[in-house]
Design a protein around this nucleic acid. Structure first.
Length: 302
DNA sequence: AAGAGCTCCAACCGCAAAGCT
DNA sequence: TAGCTTTGCGGTTGGAGCTCT
């Protein structure tokens, strides 16, 4: 008999996701959270399997994703971690908030491998290629050839070493890059239902990722700035849903504030997506950090 | 200008681990 | 504890877009 497939594949759509599908998935998760991936496509009205939805969310739609090029420091850190952990991409990705295992894996396969080859290092074991071509790592021959100051492949020790180093050379926040081949249209509604709020959030997020971070939130404040300054509310110029607000879920409060706000001045944006200027919404900016901690029912205002 | 080759990355697949009954 | 379901992971691939000739 064998295992059942993760879903009934008959009639399910495959291949690249459309904007409408992204929209449905994002809207559904913002409204309901994630309980069971298997049921998500059915409930969200998608002809996709749960696995595909999960992948799409984790690798592409998740609001806390950090997009854009890897810095040299990040690459160095990946090399260090890989020398210790091997191809355990999810473990490596856990050291890079906002980066996905898929992204790191892709970057490794397309860029870092080449870089190591240029340095005449074997990407499999990080040893000089002349010394040990195609050799596999052994306990006597640790993988840490590139990691200075760490002599034992003790998995408990390394993350601390790597994290402290990463903390000591934090790069400035990167400017987000536009996504290839994805264009979004903004539809303005003065009176917003929760579903429309989700739409709005989706659009804001799309704008954030799609216009080089130039989405302005009144007073010349960048959405990017608000999110990156979230941990430091004093810089966030009136962003009331601050990180310190732990009594209530600030994500929900932010949603509520959008509901209360009636979306600012009541005029639709009259400019191209590259110039969106969202007046009166500073208080409504989400705390994406809080998104991870949503409880079932947190977003059910109906 | 065109087409061949290359690069990059989103998405798929199969398997293993974890969770549930 | 066995068997089934669901989730997570890593390897791989297809194709869009870019570069080179």
């Amino acid at each position: 008999m064998g295992r059942q497939p993760c879903c009934d594949k008959v009639g399910l759509k495959r291949g690249p996701w459309t904007i409408d599908e992204d929209h449905k998935l994002m809207s559904f998760i913002l409204n309901n959270g994630i309980h069971c991936w298997r049921t998500v496509p059915k409930l969200a009205g998608l002809l996709r399997c749960g696995k595909s939805c999960r992948l799409r969310w984790i690798n592409y739609l998740r609001p806390d994703l950090k997009r854009g090029h890897f810095t040299e420091a990040e690459e160095d850190q990946i090399i260090q971690l890989h020398s210790h952990l091997g191809n355990r991409w999810s473990k490596i990705a856990s050291h890079f908030p906002g980066r996905t295992d898929n992204e790191i894996k892709n970057h490794w396969n397309t860029r870092i491998k080449k870089r190591l080859k240029l340095l005449e290092r074997n990407p499999l074991n990080h040893m000089p290629t002349d010394d040990c071509k195609d050799s596999k790592p052994t306990s006597e021959q640790p993988l840490l050839a590139l990691v200075e100051g760490i002599t034992s492949p003790d998995e408990e020790k390394l993350p601390m070493a790597v994290e402290s180093e990463a903390a000591s050379r934090q790069d400035p926040p990167e400017v987000l890059e536009p996504r290839k081949g994805v264009e979004y249209e903004y539809e303005y509604e003065a009176e917003l239902s929760l579903d429309e709020v989700a739409t709005d959030l989706f659009d804001n997020y799309a704008a954030l990722c799609g216009n080089n971070g130039t989405l302005l939130l009144g007073e010349g404040l960048l959405l990017d700035d608000v999110i990156s300054n979230h941990a430091n509310p004093s810089v966030s110029q009136g962003c009331s849903a601050s990180a310190g607000d732990s009594n209530n879920n600030s994500f929900c409060k932010s949603i509520q504030s959008i509901m209360d706000d009636s979306h600012g001045n009541g005029n639709p944006p009259d400019c191209s997506p590259q110039e969106w200027h969202v007046e009166g919404c500073v208080n409504s900016v989400l705390s994406w950090d809080d998104f991870d901690y949503l409880e079932p029912g947190d977003l059910c205002f109906f």
